[in-house]
Design a protein around this nucleic acid. Structure first.
Lengths: 349, 349
DNA sequence: TTGAAAGCGATACCAC
DNA sequence: GTGGTATCGCTTTCAA
């Protein structure tokens, strides 16, 4: 008789089965500070298990005034960039007992507004927005106003990507990664660099370049603009850029690309032209995909891996943790592969 | 005064602002059959917009007894297989005004049980489970019992992958795809086939083979087991298998692989051995990834694309639509690329 | 500590 | 058509 034909057992069913009041059952099962006598406590727990009780989140949300959910808005979940962020986010949300609500703009960023509007119905406690491009640049669309409104009425907003006041942001540590790569390559003995810069309109790409320069200068090496090539972000772009580069190679020891795909394209083109990689010319990249082009092992290329999963998790933490003020940025990982062998028998710099 | 300092406006605020009862406001804004006078209707709509009203899903859920959410459980969202399914699922859920709750087992399928248990708290209306392997095979884990319980208490369960009674399933149309590929290749004039079978423990792989045989037999061509090679599912596997194959090539015209990665590996190995593809030997694959190995255009390989996005969307529809009895399976798409040129000047079969 | 009762915001049954 | 009102399941004062 505890569990009526109506279906899912309610808290009242548990209370009745345990012979206590609903208040007590509530305190045991969902209350914050435990203030229930041991005997009652056990009885309630046993009863809950016996009737197969499971908290009704909607009811709890109504009573408490907040729904334990966090929304994640991504561009296209099929994109590794977003998929890896989502992976970290689901893990962290789940760990905290939160529901992760996934929304995809399907590449159409103008949909963001509508999606967030839709979202409000759920009254999620936080909103995480993953973006590849600058958010404030689209201020005219009213997105910023909407985000601010959300922050006022609902909960915190965190952007994974470019910061936009007054919204908290987790930036990919591209400058750090660029710097770390430079340091590592200097350590290996490289001194004469050329850099392939993919799509400078994307902040991450510029940051990688800037960070790389910082790292180089720490070793007393400069990277003049004449050594920086702007390259379309694709394998084809890398291949084409290499042709141009070879006409004026000079004494370059290594090409560093701000994007793996460009690096792979360059590698392919170089090899098909009889330039041995890394023996004649070394190559390094930067990226987030685990793609391993045919004939190569993914680990072969020296590159920097963006900590996207960690960033996704950090975004959730920051969004949910009221204490979070500044977000510790995860550290990028420099991977040294055979594409950049040590240049000298002994380390120097 | 309509919107108190308390924060988010409630339905009562809208009603007051419009000068109507809360019941009327409810009918206008969320009710099913419209039975409100035009005048009132407009007033309510205007008031809602004016105060910035947004339905409180939790409250609505309590009153209606159901929460408009659907949960999607995937293995690893970073995997293209799951990402594409999720993409289609988010689109369809959003289209229907449903919240899509994403859960990831992170590769550990034993977590499925815990995740679904967690999930129950939300009382989602449906549950979609995407899996690569057989579900019923894991019956011992109690998963099936749990799914049945969910179906009884909450809503429909749909599996994207292998069927498992009494749970509805959307199967990848691998048999259809295999058959369609065979038909297309016969059409091009191919008659002597070898098949590389990747991981026969995965039902999809077997289905592709079976379907392929069905398609061939319709053209009077047989594929004896001696022409089927079991190959590890990787490029390396494809490369290795090709070596073995070449020792006894016979008069084979084309190698068909049940997995693209294997096909690419085979291609690479063949070319490095001086066997021209497709001139000396043609190649075809089957897959769901848009990977384009270095030096090749993704469209170059003849392959079959699994309609994963459509399957994701179809799963949501089937899970949410009470009328759905059997699910129309999306059709796989055969892509003919230069890796399989026509063998004869004129079609025959 | 424990229990009774008042909401939380929206829906829907039921008179008017 | 429209407007009261009980109700959904749970939390949380407030007394006891």
């Amino acid at each position: 008789m505890a569990n009526e034909a109506s279906g899912t057992p309610r808290l009242a069913d548990v209370a009745r089965a345990a012979g206590v009041s609903q208040s007590t059952a509530s305190r045991v099962l969902n209350g914050s500070t435990r203030q229930v006598a041991g005997t009652y406590r056990d009885r309630v727990l046993a009863a809950a298990k016996q009737v197969g009780y499971s908290t009704n989140l909607a009811a709890q949300a109504m009573a408490r005034g907040r729904y334990p959910a966090v929304a994640l808005v991504v561009g296209d979940i099929r994109d590794q960039f977003f998929a890896r962020i989502a992976f970290g986010a689901t893990r962290e949300a789940s760990r905290r007992g939160y529901v992760l609500n996934l929304l995809s703009t399907e590449g159409d960023e103008s949909r963001e507004r509508d999606l967030i509007e839709e979202l409000r119905r759920q009254r999620p406690e936080a909103l995480v927005l993953a973006r590849k491009r600058d958010t404030s640049a689209r201020a005219g669309s009213g997105l910023m106003e909407q985000l601010i409104g959300f922050q006022r009425e609902n909960g915190r907003v965190v952007i994974v990507g470019e910061p936009a006041e007054p919204v908290m942001a987790i930036r990919p540590p591209d400058a750090d990664g660029g710097k770390a790569l430079a340091t590592a390559l200097l350590e290996l003995g490289y001194r004469r660099f050329v850099l392939f810069l993919a799509d400078p309109t994307i902040p991450s790409q510029r940051d990688r370049l800037d960070g790389f320069r910082v790292g180089l200068s720490a070793g007393g090496v400069a990277l003049p603009d004449s050594q920086v090539y702007e390259v379309p972000q694709s394998m084809a772009g890398g291949a084409a850029a290499v042709k141009e580069f070879l006409a004026d190679r000079g004494d370059t020891e290594i090409i560093v690309s701000t994007e793996d795909s460009v690096a792979w394209g360059a590698i392919h083109e170089l090899q098909s032209r009889g330039v041995a990689v890394p023996d004649d010319l070394a190559i390094a990249g930067y990226g987030h995909r685990a793609s391993s082009p045919i004939g190569y092992d993914a680990d072969w290329l020296t590159t920097v891996r963006s900590p996207l999963e960690e960033m996704g998790a950090a975004a959730i933490s920051a969004a949910l943790d009221p204490l979070a003020v500044d977000i510790p940025t995860p550290t990028p990982e420099v991977h040294l592969g055979p594409s950049t062998p040590a240049r000298y028998p002994s380390v120097r710099h």
